[in-house]
Structures are given as structure tokens and as C-alpha cells.
Design a protein around this nucleic acid. Structure first.
Lengths: 115, 115
DNA sequence: GTTCCTAGGAACACAAAGGTAACTATTGCG
DNA sequence: CGCAATAGTTACCTTTGTGTTCCTAGGAAC
């Protein structure tokens, strides 16, 4: 299977989006940044249940390199780095909201007593 | 890291949804089923670019076991099996749509000449 | 008679994803 | 002094994901 280029994905907005947002942690990170605004690295680590330091840095780098997350480091000791969503990052919120909404519907369909 | 149970996810609709929809191919499969309705196995395989037979069967089984996809086999030769979305599966469409919309916005933000 | 078509299942192997532990630098606190 | 705290990085190892190949049944087309 040949590697897809950016140009290949451009044809289909859906696949373009998924090529950027795919992965086990990206939506979860965007979810907490969307809900809670600016967060420091360790705050994020504590807010995304189960993620490891390594994965968090990797995913944040990926999101930053795609312009979705903003990274603002401070030259203090101990170090302080703040992460927040960029404008295009904020525009992922409707996706997050729809996923949450669907989660509620799914829960209701699986366990009608909760609705 | 301990395995999360369904009950753990129930607290948060977002994480519940992601626990069901996570994976490289699930959104893509739902995308084509949502757009094209009922499809046979091979049609699906051809419609999801890059997926292998094995992954398609695995993902379809997963989605079927969660009540998102309906599987209707026919006792013909050659075999014929039709896949379609259930009601709760159809309700994923808004998520798909928002992802597509975001893809367009993202494309425009990366390459303003396209908007 | 030979070959093609479908909807997978089984076994095998490799690559990618992810976890864990150790390490850094500097300041503040007790 | 000794320890905690932050934001990572690196090396090493395990787990999972995914691809590949081979296989089936029986009618249809050649």
C-alpha cells in the first residue's frame, strides 16, 4: 500500500481531517483543551486518563506541527509550558461536541434506563 | 494501566463514544456506509481505500457487535452479505459531517487558495 | 473442463504504537 | 543538605495492529 500524500487527501475533506486527527489520543487531548482552555504539560498529563508522558509529547508535537495546538514555553524554573488551541484547533470543537452527543445516544440505546 | 470497563466510560459520553469508534478504519467504514447506504462486503472493501480483507472483517464484526452495523447474509452462491447502518449507526452521521466540515476548514487554513 | 467470483477464516510475520524507567537542570522548601 | 517539582528526552521492551498468503463452495461464463 503506497503512502498517501497530502494531495491525495485534499480531494476528500473527511480523509484529510482523519489523516490529521487519527490516533488513540488526539481527540482526547483536543477534548480537554477544548473544555478547559490553556493547560500546562503536567495538567494535560493528569487530565488525559491513561496517557504516558511520551505519548503526550508526541501527540502535542504532532498537533503543534499541524497548527492545531499552540505551545508557549516560559524560561522559568521549574519549566512551564502552556498549551492551548489555535483558531483552527478551536474549530474542532463541533466535532468533539457531536462525538459527545452521540456517546449519550449510544448509552441510551445500550442502557435505556439512563435516558 | 488497568483495563477500563464499560462502567468507567459511562461517566463520560465522549470517552464512551471514542471507546467504540476508535481505530484506524471505523470512521472510514461508517463514512462510506453513511454516504452510500447498503453495501456488500467486496463493495465496502473497494470503497475504503487501503483496507485489507482481514481488517474489514474485524472492524465490521466489532461494529456489528456494538449494534452499529447490520449484517444480512444470503445463502447464495457466490455468497452475498449486505452491510448497512442500524439506527444508532445512522446517528453517527452528524459526527462524520462535522469531521468533513472541519477538513474543509483545515484545508482552507493550510492552503487559502482553495477557499 | 477450467477459471472466476464472493465472503470470509486461519496461520504467520513484521512494523508501528505504546509503556516503563532512568536522567537532566534549577529553584524552593524544610 | 536532601527532596520535590516541571517538561521533557532517550533507550529498551512489549503489545497491538496490520498485511500476506492460502483455503473453501458451487454456480456462471468461456
Amino acid at each position: 500500500m503506497a503512502q498517501k500524500s497530502f494531495e491525495d487527501y485534499m480531494e476528500c475533506p473527511f480523509h484529510l481531517a482523519m489523516s490529521v486527527l487519527e490516533g488513540r489520543w488526539k481527540f482526547a487531548i483536543l477534548y480537554v483543551l477544548s473544555a478547559r482552555g490553556t493547560l500546562r504539560f503536567k495538567e494535560l498529563e493528569r487530565s488525559v486518563p491513561g496517557i504516558s508522558t511520551r505519548m503526550l509529547t508526541k501527540e502535542l508535537k504532532h498537533l503543534e506541527s499541524h497548527g492545531i495546538v499552540r505551545r508557549v514555553p516560559y524560561a522559568t524554573v521549574p519549566p512551564k509550558v502552556e498549551y492551548s488551541l489555535t483558531d483552527i484547533g478551536i474549530s474542532v470543537s463541533p466535532v468533539i461536541d457531536e462525538i459527545s452527543k452521540w456517546g449519550e445516544q449510544y448509552l441510551a440505546s445500550v442502557d435505556p434506563s439512563t435516558s
